[in-house]
Amino acid sequence: MTSAEEQGKGAEPLLEVQDLCRRYGEHVILDHVSFRIMPGDVVAVIGPSGCGKSTLIRSLNLLERAESGRILFHGRDLLTLSSREAAATIPRIGMVFQQFNLFDNMTVLRNVALAPEISGGLTRSQAEEKAMMLLERVGLAGRAGAYPSHLSGGQKQRVAIVRSLAMDPEIILFDEPTSALDPEMVQEVLALMRDLAQGGLTMMVVTHEMRFARNVSTRAMFVCDGGIRVDEPPERFFEDPPDPRLREFLTTAGMRG
C-alpha cells in the first residue's frame, strides 16, 4: 500500500488542521496541533489515555470548541462558519462514539432514517428505504424494528456506523469505537470498519486496537502531551518507531517484545 502523501499528491486535502489549541484552565490539551487528511486516508490515532486524542477528534466536528487555530474542510474554516452553515457541513464529517449514543426512543430504522429525513432533505419513505439498504449491507435488516435497548453492544455500534453513513459523509471520525464492547463483540465492529476502509472511505480512528491500526490504517499518529509526536505509515510506526515514548508505549501495549 502506498503512503497517503504519495496518494494525495496534487490533490486537495479533505481536512487540514492548523495550529489547533485547546486548554481546560491551566491544562493544555491541544498545543498547536497541525496535520492534514487526504481523501482515502485511514488514520489511526494512538496514545496514552488522557493525552488529548478524544479532544482532538471531537474538535474536528465542533463537539469541542478549539480556542485558536483553523480546521479547513475542503478549504473552508469550520471555526468561522455560522451555526447554520456548520449544521449543513457537520454531517459530512460522520462521527461514531464510544458509547454508541443511539437514540433510545427510536427503532433501529428510525435511528438511521431520522437525520436524512429531517436534515438531509429526503422524504420519509426515501430515508427509510436508504436506511433499510444500509442495514442490509451490514446484516442488520432483521433488527430494523428493534429498539436500541434490545441490541447487543456490537449490533448497537454497527447501527451507529450505519446511522453515520446514511448522511453520506466524506470522512467518519471514530472515537474509541470498540472500547465499550465486550471482547467477543469487538471483531464484528472492526470487520465492518475494515470493509469501509477497503471501500475507500476516509476515516480517522482513535483506538487501542493495535492490530487493527497495524493492518488497516494508511497512517498512524502517536498523540501525546497535546501534540502529534509521530505521524507515519503503519509499517514504520510499528516496526521502527522513531520516538522513544512511542517505543515505550508500544512495548507496554504488547506490540513489541
Binding site: N61, L62, L63, A87, A88, I90, P91, I93, G94, M95, F97, N101, L102, F103, D104, L114, A115, I118, S119, G120, A160, R163, S164, M167
Partner: peptide
C-alpha cells in the same frame, strides 16, 4: 444523545 444529534446535522 445531544452530541449524536449534532453530528448528524440536527
Amino acid at each position: 444523545q445531544f452530541e449524536a444529534g449534532r453530528t448528524l446535522g440536527l
